[in-house]
């Protein structure tokens, strides 16, 4: 039986997880520069150790209301894809858990289509559900098949 290590993180009230292998970095974003006219899902650009990182607002991406409270109290997951750096802005980062792949269940059929498009499946944990996030999909801002959300 194969198992995967997941980094867990919180967006709104929901717990998500993604394979540790996909996470390059976890950092606290500072000085995010807004990019006027860009899609609302793009929080802006920021400087992470000399590299320009495109920050994606996970809440906006998932259609959740904007964060309340201290705007600086956020975290980001650094992802490298096709030679570009991205930061997925989330609410908070949790522990790393090891989960059996076989225990992962299909997305419930009635899951919100945007959520379904970025979810690989669901793990049942003791006290909560963990959605396995498809990093490739959540970074695909503005691609056609997420348009069905409307």
């Amino acid at each position: 039986m194969s198992s995967t290590e997941y980094v867990t993180f919180q967006i709104g009230t929901q717990t998500f997880g993604t394979s540790v292998l996909e996470v390059h970095d976890v950092f606290r974003p500072t000085k995010v520069t807004k990019v006027p006219l860009s899609k609302p899902d793009i929080a802006g650009v920021l400087n992470l150790r000399g590299r320009i990182v495109t920050a994606i607002d996970a809440r906006a991406r998932l259609g959740l209301p904007p964060r309340e409270g201290d705007p600086d109290d956020i975290m980001a997951i650094g992802i490298e894809q096709n030679g570009e750096s991205f930061g997925l802005i989330i609410d908070s980062v949790g522990e790393v858990v090891r989960l059996e792949e076989n225990d992962m269940e299909q997305n419930p059929v009635n899951l919100d289509p945007i959520w379904a498009s970025v979810s690989k499946g669901v793990h049942r944990m003791d006290d909560k559900l963990l959605i396995v996030m498809d990093i490739g999909r959540i970074l695909a801002v503005g691609e056609p098949d997420e348009g069905l959300a409307a």
Partner: peptide, 12 residues
């Protein structure tokens, strides 16, 4: 520095 593909659509 070049822009990410996500932003290259913006001609500004």
């Amino acid at each position: 520095k070049p822009l990410t593909n996500m932003l290259t659509g913006l001609r500004q």
